[in-house]
Nucleic acid binder design. Structure first.
Lengths: 341, 341
DNA sequence: TTATACAATGTAAGCGTTTACATTCCCGAA
DNA sequence: TTCGGGAATGTAAACGCTTACATTGTATAA
């Protein structure tokens, strides 16, 4: 593995010279822009192949001011939905002929210089931003220069007209809790919130409260804990409830990971699910149907969210217009943990 | 959402002019290269903030011939290991101060123009390539120009000295099958291979055959099927065995997804696991411990693989040297599906 | 006092493309 | 025969940055 520098880069000039044409013609061949005689084209292609020429992306971007690339910014990489979401995004970008660049904001890392991300308006034609991937300040700046951005699972900051796509969190949560109340007659229903400031959790809680209100069940703060969308935290939260003797006949954990933790706590304490305490989650992770009892939950069209986000972004790039808000419908997945047979 | 073009881009010239210095000085401030008087620096920073200046990445790359970025190329996005692997890669890149650019090769899409990827030697300092992310031809070209590349879960093509990092597939499979034979006395052990040409599967099968050979168990082709690392395919494969009356007292499915399918087939056919047929998988997916019986399997340090790959790549970039092959150790996870109590 | 060294800054030549504009050539219409 | 017009191609000026080299000023050593 020697460290010797490679020979000088093959440039468009080399190709032009080799093919006996001008750089403009080579460029035309490569980008299929402007007319080129068949014969000339062949000579150029031969030269390209012979010299093993690769256009220099940075130079191309600089000169053309177009990137044909869309960027994706992630706050951190984890969660069951990451892979399908990314798949949807990558697939849709491909469909529209865009390349995809992804940048994951490191959790621990200090905020960048002023705010210079490796991807942004200088090397992409548009950005898909997942949850809190970008600070408000940066979002504002992009908005000001009318740079196309689409948000995923995130409401745009006050006053910024940025299109966003997410799922029917509130309506689904409402449905889930309605089910618990109407079908299974539960009335003391606990809720385990996600991490502080989590947008999905916010709306799910809203749906939970709406369901209560609609059935004249008073809201009891003692029945709302923090599950952090995390198995261990949720388990601890439920254990605490149990220990404190909080009465309840059902729990809506904000997501399925929490449900797993809640189930463990409940089972360990000798509570029967769903007989003593019904349990419902959100997300329909792989595990959900293998839990004992199988978990009643909500399935979100994760891949489709990614797909739709890119569709909107491309529309925004091409026409300057996009749907301000897209709420993708979810699907109730009734299994046994809610009490259904 | 208007489509009006944003005002002209703020360039380093604007900043220089505004701050009353030369562009060189501005560049020095931004990149902390060369000495700058405190007073001057302040003026420059103020100008940057005032004008809301952002360096143009493409221009910077073009001029400096450095990118401070490493690229990751994926064949397609899926699989349980995707998120942790990416996390490891992103985290390590961050540690070394590199940005990360990711490109996922679309499955269906036709191969690109000659072979021009959106990321490569022109916009990254090095590449991490996952399995068959890049065709051999491209790999060869990169090798020729001495461009730093590290492979993940993939042996370099004949004659190419490209460092690679993967896991102890063969040794772990061997261990697993040894366990089946030595501890549980099984001798008719089936194997479900992964997709055609899958590198991990190849080595796991090798480990399987080694274990058989070491115990003087003849290799029986009838006991080797294709599970495709996929639940449905694996299920069908096992059903076919059952239907054809193939005798067996254990199955080593190449991965856990297959194990799930195999388990379903076995259970549906009234076979008891592990009493009639012991079952072991590979990967230790989340689900594994929730199966009934809980699945004996192997845990791979997926995140660490990503981490190590980047570590080697950075080393390669900086010194031109790297470990040719790194095999990360795995961990046997004994649960009940193999027959252990 | 003078030579020296270094800190601070400026000048301008690239980096590898694209593309507006100019040029040449050829063909068919008048 | 002449001329307009497009097809095919070339010329050269950007694009926004880095950086080698030049310049200036100031402090220190001799």
């Amino acid at each position: 593995m020697s460290h010797s520098k490679p020979p000088a880069r093959v440039t468009i000039n080399d190709v032009a010279e080799y093919a006996g044409v001008s750089t403009a013609t080579v460029s035309r061949v490569i980008n299929r822009t402007g007319p080129v005689a068949a014969e000339t084209e062949q000579a150029v292609r031969a030269a390209i192949a012979e010299l093993n020429y690769r256009p220099h992306t940075a130079a191309k971007i600089l000169a053309s001011n177009r990137t044909n690339t869309i960027g994706l910014i992630f706050p951190q990489i984890s969660g069951y939905y990451f892979a399908p979401l990314l798949r949807g995004i990558a697939a849709c970008a491909g469909e529209y002929g865009f390349d995809l660049l992804i940048y994951s904001v490191q959790e621990g890392s200090a905020p960048r210089e002023p705010f210079t991300y490796p991807i942004g308006d200088q090397n992409t034609d548009g950005l898909v931003v997942f949850t809190e991937g970008l600070p408000e300040q940066e979002l504002r700046r992009l908005c000001e220069i009318a740079f196309p951005v689409v948000l995923i699972h995130c409401t745009p900051p006050e006053g910024l007209r940025i299109p966003s796509v997410t799922i029917e969190n509130k309506a689904s949560a409402r449905q889930l809790v309605d089910h618990l109340i109407e079908v299974h007659g539960r009335r003391r229903i606990g809720f385990l919130a996600g991490p502080k400031g989590h947008e999905d959790s916010y709306w799910r809680e809203k749906g939970y409260r709406e369901a209560l209100a609609a059935h004249n069940i008073p809201y009891d703060p003692a029945l709302v804990g923090v599950g952090g969308f995390n198995e261990a935290i949720a388990r601890a939260a439920v254990e605490k409830w149990l220990q404190e003797g909080v009465e309840m006949d059902a729990i809506f954990t904000g997501d399925d990971d929490s449900a797993t933790g809640a189930l463990a706590a409940l089972t360990a304490a000798g509570k029967r699910v769903p007989d003593d305490v019904a349990l419902v989650g959100f997300d329909d992770i792989d595990l959900a149907r293998y839990l004992n009892p199988p978990l009643t939950t909500v399935r979100a069209p994760v891949e489709q969210v990614g797909h739709e986000a890119v569709r909107q972004l491309v529309r925004l790039i091409r026409t300057g217009e996009a749907e301000p808000l897209i709420l993708l419908p979810t699907q109730l997945v009734i299994r046994q943990s809610c009490g259904c047979p």
